[in-house]
Design a protein around this nucleic acid. Structure first.
Lengths: 155, 155
DNA sequence: TTGATTGTTCAGTTCGGACTGAACGAGGTG
DNA sequence: CACCTCGTTCAGTCCGAACTGAACAATCAA
């Protein structure tokens, strides 16, 4: 088990990723797990994660499951070993973008739903909302093409 | 003062924007203010916002100031009137993108700082981190070009 | 069977940000 | 001056998410 304490620069990195994740709406521990796994040469077990990050096994379990569910980490395994080994999902970056796209899409739908309710006398409001829809649709489309270009370029 | 209660579809919209903002790391009330101002034909005073949203004036004040600071709303004024009138900043959409760019930039710097600390034996980890930097740099650059294309296209 | 090992779930606590009431400051008006 | 109006700030409360300990599967081994 590749445990061992982290060096101070690594601790710092893990904490900063934890804080950034919080701003993203993920629990801090989930972020710390991501940070640690980014730095890890080998996948890590639940106990390893809990011990290295000094959090309870319950938290480690809850948060790895969360990260697994949203596709940010993968569970892997080894022959003759009952434990699960967690690693950063190979497509984690794409998943992040995917999450962003979904959020943008949600906003577009929300605005489109309210638009018919805004009286036609409210010309400024209607114009503003219409622009919002156009903008977010544009962003949505660009994010998709961006990803395609990356995938082409990456190989 | 263009007060008056909101219709139910509008209340629904305002609440949903409030919830989405929370996921973005903004207070719910800040989001509700954004939602309300999106729908408003005229700018609104602090008292108007507080009353319509049924929150304290203190909250309205704190959150309009927050939104003003991050450039999402504007304070406007009228002759012979001491009050401030708040509206969605005309460049609010660009500001959102700006915020996203800053966050991406921060992440790039963070990873670049930790990379030299990762031992050269950790080939997988180093490769992963390097790809992360490349990806986010790519996104950063694309977001900028995206905005330029929008601005050209918009006129 | 008993006893480890691994992981999940749940009840309860903790902690921090959001929100409010109230006091205050800064201007304006009579 | 006294008395508004408008807005900010601060101390304190409240609420909910995050986290933990402990109990509980489930699986394997002896």
């Amino acid at each position: 088990m590749e445990t061992g304490d982290l060096r101070s620069a690594e601790v710092e990195f893990v904490e900063r990723i934890g804080l950034m994740s919080e701003e993203d709406g993920l629990p801090r521990i989930a972020g710390r797990i991501m940070g640690l796994l980014m730095l890890s040469e080998e996948p890590r077990t639940l106990d390893d994660l809990a011990e290295t990050l000094q959090v309870s096994k319950a938290s480690a379990s809850t948060n790895t499951r969360l990260l697994d569910r949203i596709g940010m980490v993968d569970r892997t395994s080894r022959p003759g070993d009952r434990r699960a080994y967690y690693r950063i999902a190979p497509d984690a970056l794409e998943r992040s973008l995917e999450r962003m796209r979904r959020r943008t899409q949600e906003l577009v739908e929300l605005v489109e739903e309210v638009l018919p309710e805004v009286p036609s006398e409210s010309a400024r409001a209607r114009g503003r909302l219409t622009t919002m829809v156009r903008w977010h649709r544009f962003v949505l489309q660009e994010l998709t093409s961006l990803q395609e270009r990356w995938e082409d370029d990456d190989e």
